[in-house]
Design a binder for these strands. Sequence first.
RNA 1: GCCGGCGUAGCUCAGUGGUAGAGCAGCUGAUUCGUAAUCAGCAGGUCGCGGGUUCGACUCCCAUCGCCGGCUCCA
Length: 636
Amino acid sequence: MEEVQIKINDAEEIAVSKGTTAEEIFASNKVGQDAVAARFNGQLIDLTAPLNTGGELKPLRRTEPEALEMLRHSTSHIMAQAVRQLFPGVKVTIGPSIENGFYYDFDYDSTFTPEDLPRIEARMAEIIAQEQPFSRREMSRAEAIKLFENLGEPYKVEILQDMDDEEVSIYELGDFIDLCRGPHLVSSKKVPAFKLLGVSGAYWRGDERRQRLQRIYGTAFFARKELKQHLNFLEEAKKRDHRRLGKDLDLFSIHEEAGAGLVIWHPRGALLRALIEDFERTEHLKRGYDIVSGPMILKTDLWQASGHFDNYRENMYFTEVDKISYGIKPMNCLSHMLIYKSRLRSYRDLPLRYFELGTVFRHEKSGVLHGLIRVRQFTQDDAHIICTPDQLNDEIKGVIQFVVDIMGVFGFEFETEISTRPEKSIGTDEDWELATTALQTAMEDMGLKYDINVGDGAFYGPKIDVNLKDALNRRWQCATIQCDLTLPERFDLTFVGSDGERHRPVMIHRTILGSIERFIGVLIEHYAGAFPVWLAPVQAVILTVTDRGDEYAREVYAKLKNEGLRVELDLRNEKLGLKIREAQLMKVPYMLVIGDREVEQGGISPRTRTGKDLKFMTVEEFKARVQPEIQPPVFQ
RNA sequence: GCCGGCGUAGCUCAGUGGUAGAGCAGCUGAUUCGUAAUCAGCAGGUCGCGGGUUCGACUCCCAUCGCCGGCUCCA
């Protein structure tokens, strides 16, 4: 029989007869017993795939990320089989693995309800117990089209018709046949732990004009313990939900009677905001920005001139004053342009960096509103940098450094991506090319990795988006750096160069935190409401044991308050345990206990919100101790 | 905007055709009690809003507003 040479264990070359499977090779050579699939010449393949050529073979182990993806993808097939059996007439579409699980989209006349999930899970458990093999078959595209036509699966037919490959593969699992690249687990029995998590709507191919589908989400793991951990993680995330904490910590509220997506800040939340905004103003001034401020409404004519009316109108609010139409600003750039144009600019003036904590209004679709994360009125830490083309690179780098510094302060890690020209946009191809290259070059100069997000730029230019990762590893878009070569053109911005001629400047739109509302929402979840001392709305609360300490407590309160500490006084006739509990639930960093001992010895007994007793100390000692923590962070 | 779910006291929730309930919070009183909940009493709701069905609607139907989970979109 014909033999092929297979390299295993990164070294050994062995000869096996053609058609031997990866599974057999692993078994006879005592490698990869825990393999769930294989890598053959770098390609992922089924364990049961026959090897017909020589090459390098490696096990795909459970611990590798691709293994988990495959497990989840296989589980989605199991779910699809269960759904087809329980709901005859359902049509299948696609069922990929996603970041923390998988989904499968179905087209079905009546709707799935959350009550259906346990039934589907039960059927899936049966399929798993039956140890059904996943078996792969390859065929021509034409054959596959015929197969899925006969099966009454029009979505699969559509996918096939759009494919370029002439050879395709299908996987059979019990009575369920799916078009699929694979690989898959050897059998359904290899799914140790799974759970269905929810149903929701989706559109065929993500296009809102096309067929509405029903999506079922689930997840799967190689160990029950891991599934449990994941479910705990979801619980933890729920506890940290900024909408919950916003209410519990009395930070903000949103009222039906005031309007959806409109945030009302309570004293503690407004204070938190003010602290962040003050910090930002200080940092911007240090970094050579000028603080500016523009009006909330500007004439619609001006929005027409800028291109916003044509490209962004559906997101804007309009109003009329003395029969003149005004647009309520969805962005801050127009005023900044007018400041620039208010006098003749020399190259010696550039770069100009205009910073505004600018409140903007955007008509977001009702279904997307979400706590502080997605609202209709929000304040951006917005700036527009107007510079010469030569300065562009340095300016972008300066902004990136700014982002790096600020994210460091809050302890966020982040990922970046560059978005390129969208369909609906203005400007010439050359300008877009130039701007996109400028962004890429700056990122490379800064040594930062980035993904390219094709067609996702703003209508006036390409952008770098910064997605920060919070403590629960979720990603949120906050900072954005957008390069713009078209607005300077439209507004005819110029500067006089050293040659005495007029030249066109370029412009960067950028934010660091993005929306203050969104950022605070993310921050609340990131810290689980336990803000660092410099941001805590209440930094310390004085708790008396009995009313014999009241007078002394008032003295201590006055002293600390006078030092600028945000301190509160709890003189209620309640037990110390209750006062501590309540301060704890409000996540106050320090609780200062005053009982008879403290009054006699002239001090306080602080305790931290982490439950640590700091023991008796004088007020001066406490002040010295917290001094470094109560100030905003300072950079070199 | 779309698909699905949900709106009952300040909060968390019970109540599926016959005059609305609990716990916590609130108020009043007692208690002076040292590191996550002292005890008792009182008060609190046109059941999101508007129509309809019915002798009768928190409960069934329609419409609408809002919220939740997704989709599309986005800071």
